[in-house]
Nucleic acid binder design. Structure first.
Lengths: 202, 202
DNA sequence: ACCTGAACACCGTTCAAGT
DNA sequence: ACCTGAACACCGTTCAAGT
């Protein structure tokens, strides 16, 4: 079961990322190890290192590919709706693949789709009359908020339906209110309203 | 060097947390392992488990203690300033101790100081005329945004002064703009403005 | 009651060597 | 050029046993 000994085609980066994407799609990205991934590809763990920098390199590629599949909002959407759509898709990706959250706390994400999202928001906002600087500020704020929500949601998922500590049930219920769909929309709406009204338009 | 054999006083939870806090204060919380902590306390790693649930239990206690040291804002502050002060102190704690960030993505934080911060915000907002529900929504939104900023800042710190990949420098500079003091204040201000203006007051 | 000793079940990654 | 084999340097945590 070694492709080295059987003279099979050499390993490629695409092959590695495809295998990782299959894990993402089957919901097993969380427990993915390099050793298991290498096994699936009939290769030694160390063979991967010729094609990827490290494990996060793989995970970041997967994350950006998932964001790519989610796509960008229609560019003729009104700016607020465009921003909301971006937030919703990021939240969805992280919600479906919680291990992606840690990536955002480990290294700045600057892959293709991350940049395309910023660019898209910038264009829509500039067209709506904001300066480039304001557009970036607004997008950054929305992205920041969304990431915070993802962090809280990831934490709540990880806790599962928790055995609430006695005398802690109400506190827990209170904090649970932080990660409802309604609260996500509320904070997002407040932020976008505050940002778009506060900035000077051209 | 075993307190079991020398008949020393039995280990206590407070002792464990004190030792962990010393690590926090000396800036070595990041690389703390249970094995090292046990060594310092002249005890086997497993002796800790009589007094703490697991490693996160220790880390969460430290995080809440640090938040406690930061204290609460003066209760007679205007509501917006109160919320800003809460955000600033959380950011400061996470900035100084990046390993705390991961805690917020792993489990909902419901320790004493986390609850006290919510309570404080609620009181100030209710006194300013908001309903209890609105107060909670507003605080949750501010907390969410702050956590998102902490995530981005932690990522940027971890990257260090990064060797910017060729042809990626401008993208990197752009993303760096997401985690400036100015941007932190901007997003926070926009959110608080949007939230406090948007909610119906009593 | 409190702690030890040894093992379990792994990790990601380095290095030098093989073909 | 591409991959292997073995080791490095650890982790947190379980379990049964010791005093």
């Amino acid at each position: 079961v070694s492709r080295f000994k059987t003279n099979a085609a050499p390993l490629t980066r695409a092959e590695i990322l495809d295998a990782a994407m299959r894990h993402a799609r089957s919901g097993t990205l969380e427990q993915l190890s390099l050793r298991a991934l290498a096994d699936e590809l009939d290769v030694t763990p160390m063979a991967l290192y010729r094609h990827v920098r490290d494990k996060d390199d793989i995970l970041e590629s997967v994350a950006d590919a998932l964001l790519g599949e989610a796509g960008l909002p229609e560019p003729d959407e009104p700016a607020p709706a465009y921003l909301v759509a971006l937030a919703v898709s990021l939240r969805q990706v992280v919600r479906d693949h919680p291990s992606i959250m840690a990536l955002y706390t480990r290294r700045p994400q600057v892959r293709a789709m991350a940049v395309a999202r910023l660019d898209g928001a910038r264009q829509v906002l500039v067209r709506a009359g904001y300066t480039v600087d304001d557009a970036q500020r607004i997008y950054a704020a929305v992205h920041t908020y969304t990431l915070g929500f993802c962090a809280l949601e990831t934490a709540r998922q990880a806790a599962g339906t928790p055995p609430p500590t006695a005398g802690q049930e109400d506190t827990d219920a209170l904090i649970a209110g932080f990660v409802t769909e309604e609260q996500f929309r509320y904070g997002l709406g407040a932020l976008i309203a505050g940002a778009t009204e506060g900035s000077a338009r051209a």
